[in-house]
Amino acid sequence: MYPSAFTYYRAGSVQEALKLLMENPDAKLLAGGHSLIPAMKLRLASPPALIDISRVPELAGIRDRGDRIVIGATTRYDDIQRSELVRQVLPILPEAIEVIGDLQVRNMGTIGGALAHADPAADLPAVVLALGAELTAFGPDGERTIPADQFFVDLFTTALQPNEILTEISFPKPPAHTGMSYQKFANPASGYAVVGAAAVVTLGDDGKVAAVRVGVTGAGPYAVRRQNVEQALTGQEPTAAAIEAASQLASEGMTFNSDIFASDEYRAHLTRVFVKRALTAAIERARG
């Protein structure tokens, strides 16, 4: 409850934030603070300095860029959840945000903060994987784009370099006949995902699966895509049996977390079950 002393900086621009970050290499960026501040209060993290980027104007907001929707990194959960554009085009985002924390958390927490923090049990990592998002990082060498598939590297570890700032997340607009769903088995204590599965499915004119992406969070040390499930289902008639068979592959080749609430074996089982449930709901919605 009582963090160590630290220096607080507030950045007015991304440039200034980067400059502060270069000058204070052990500093942490502060956006919504709903993961960082509790860790500091428990002294699990004791950064000597915080650089507050929550008031940098260009980092927040939701923009329609033709074939993509771009969400600024410090856009708060609640603003995403309320966005009509997001509701229309990327309904899986509000569906997932609905089950993040509580209203107070959603009023403060930011999409970029959640992704950069890469908590193994956070919800949105599965969703950005399933949507095939791209993440933009700004560093001393300028901007670079990181596909979601390459972003989550390990427990609390992303592809971001220590001197890079996540600035925005860009989502391709899905084609017609696309359905998407996020299904979560929440820990009754923390509300975090024991297992969360996101599925985005596009059906062809023949009713068969034209494209599918599946992301899983909570189960292992970091969120992962489940290409084996996707391959098994692509080109198939999406029958209950086909979904079941594909979902059985969901736990293959993964490492699973184990804690007092759920063992690795149970998490593997839940992964199969929740991938199945996410696929089933997504396909139902794709059929519209």
Binding site: N187, P188, A189, Y192, D259, I260, F261
Partner: peptide
């Protein structure tokens, strides 16, 4: 929940489900 060494594993509201 305790482990065999006497560490309380459910030592916070993140782990103890009221």
């Amino acid at each position: 929940a305790y482990d065999a060494n006497g560490q309380l594993l459910s030592a916070s509201l993140m782990d103890y489900a009221i």
